[in-house]
Design a protein around this nucleic acid. Structure first.
Lengths: 149, 149
DNA sequence: TTCCTTGCAAACGATTTGCATTGGA
DNA sequence: TCCAATGCAAATCGTTTGCAAGGAA
């Protein structure tokens, strides 16, 4: 079957982005992308491996993640205990922030309402200018105990 | 000589805090504290080792950092490539945020003015409550190219 | 003397890399 | 066919831990 035909818009954009870098959109990469698309927060290589039924070697996972990061499809998030978790880039997933559990390290996405986010952006711009630096982005993390902890 | 007499206020508080945990304020711990006091951003174990002239074993450094963290003297910051950097806790260093260079990974401290910080705190409280989580803290990171990059 | 602290080396967990094989355009 | 992609195993890197020696109260 022609997988090109069945592509959803996001996958189409990703495929284009990969193609622009001379990289193929293979089954393994598609699978990782699929998990990240339905995830409610960043995922580590180990978590991805589990989500993918466990028969994917870690080396391939890390290579996939590195490629996707280089192509601007995913971004890394460095959380508790040196574990790196990945999530879809902002142009795919939208801008958002994180709730980080200080106990178990779980990370959940949150979106701020428009007014709040606009206020935050202005704040960031002002502070960055003050520091003589061009802001490329910002991250707000709120720390606390998640419901399970 | 009596080192107790020469203690600056910060060191006095730290000593008290350590004593409350049944922990001594030894030379090694004093040295690490000294480096962090003059640092303009979080420092990793490797960076501390270099700053300390290199003759301190890493295991001791990590143990020192763990102890200081347990006693609430320093807090960890997880940055690029899974490296953990430590900085003095807020009650010593004051509440602040970070400028992170997207190119070289350097982290600089920044302080927001009072109004801005108050606005941010309210925002955090509102968002956290909305998410059913008690906020214990927040981190705002502004990303961009630092002056050198 | 009694613990706390330190040093050294081995152990660990996350991530990376070399190399041979597989697979798609 | 040709080069990217994958699997496996070994290597690396940051960090942790067991154990014996050193030190302060």
């Amino acid at each position: 079957m022609s997988s090109t035909q069945a592509l959803r818009p996001v996958e189409r954009s990703v495929q284009d982005q990969l193609a622009a870098n001379g990289v193929r959109f293979t089954g393994g990469r598609r699978a990782v992308l699929g998990v990240l698309q339905v995830a409610d927060g960043p995922r580590s290589a180990a978590e991805l491996q589990q989500a993918l039924a466990g028969d994917v070697p870690v080396s391939s996972l890390y290579r996939t993640l590195t490629i996707l990061e280089d192509c601007g499809i995913v971004v890394p998030h460095h959380g508790l205990r040196g574990v790196t978790r990945y999530e879809l880039a902002e142009w795919i997933r939208g801008h958002h922030h994180h709730l980080v559990c200080t106990n178990c390290g779980a990370v959940d996405d949150i979106e701020l309402d428009e007014d709040t986010e606009e206020g935050l952006s202005k704040l960031v711009a002002a502070v960055a200018e003050n520091a003589g630096l061009t802001p490329e982005g910002h991250t707000l993390e709120i720390e606390g105990r998640c419901r399970r902890c």
